[in-house]
């Protein structure tokens, strides 16, 4: 069986084992990867973790790709990162890119909910709500926010 190696930290244990928020480590990893992508945070070196430091995690490729949506995410990330359509069919490359963005996401996650005392579920929900771009720029409120932003920009330019 092939494995995807990724960087693990104590946060994985907390979120997956202790608080049961994600069922599997790879569920959390996908979440981190989209987080990393959205925030433009990617780690190109050391993203596979270090065995001797106990930060190395592994996921069975088959487990991972059995989920259709996870495949979509992995191939999109790989494509966006390389801008090469052939990334869509290169699962090795997809695994690598996924791990790089997940390592980036992990750094943000450590900041956002790594220091939460107790169960971080609510903080994660809030994070998702705050980072839902679609909704935040929709409707009247979105327009006001946008207009306000533009004005501010205009003032600064003057």
């Amino acid at each position: 069986m092939n494995f995807i190696s990724y960087k693990k930290s104590e946060l994985y244990d907390r979120i997956v084992d202790e608080y049961d928020i994600f069922q599997n480590s790879y569920d959390f990893m996908v979440f981190l990867a989209v987080m990393g992508y959205q925030e433009g945070k990617v780690v190109r070196e050391g993203y596979k973790g270090d065995d001797s430091a106990g930060t190395k995690g592994q996921i069975g490729v088959e487990n991972f790709f059995a989920n259709d949506l996870y495949r979509v995410i992995a191939s999109s990330i790989a494509f966006q990162d390389t801008e090469d359509p052939s990334a869509l069919v290169n699962s090795e490359l997809q695994a690598e890119k996924l791990a790089q963005y997940a390592a980036g996401g992990l750094e943000i996650a450590e900041q956002e909910f790594g220091s939460t005392a107790g169960d971080p579920t609510n903080v994660i929900v809030e994070y998702i709500q705050d980072h839902d771009e679609e909704d935040s720029y929709q409707g009247t409120l979105g327009e006001i926010v946008k207009a306000f932003d533009d004005q501010m920009m205009g003032v600064e330019e003057d």
């Binding site: 994600f22 979440f31 989209v34 959205q38 995410i73 999109s76 994660i124 929900v125 839902d132 679609e134």
Partner: peptide
């Protein structure tokens, strides 16, 4: 239930721009 939602769909809103 909230945890189950995060587990199942939590990545989707964050992934929408990417997709």
């Amino acid at each position: 239930e909230i945890k189950a939602e995060i587990d199942e769909k939590g990545f989707v809103p964050l992934a929408i721009p990417l997709i």
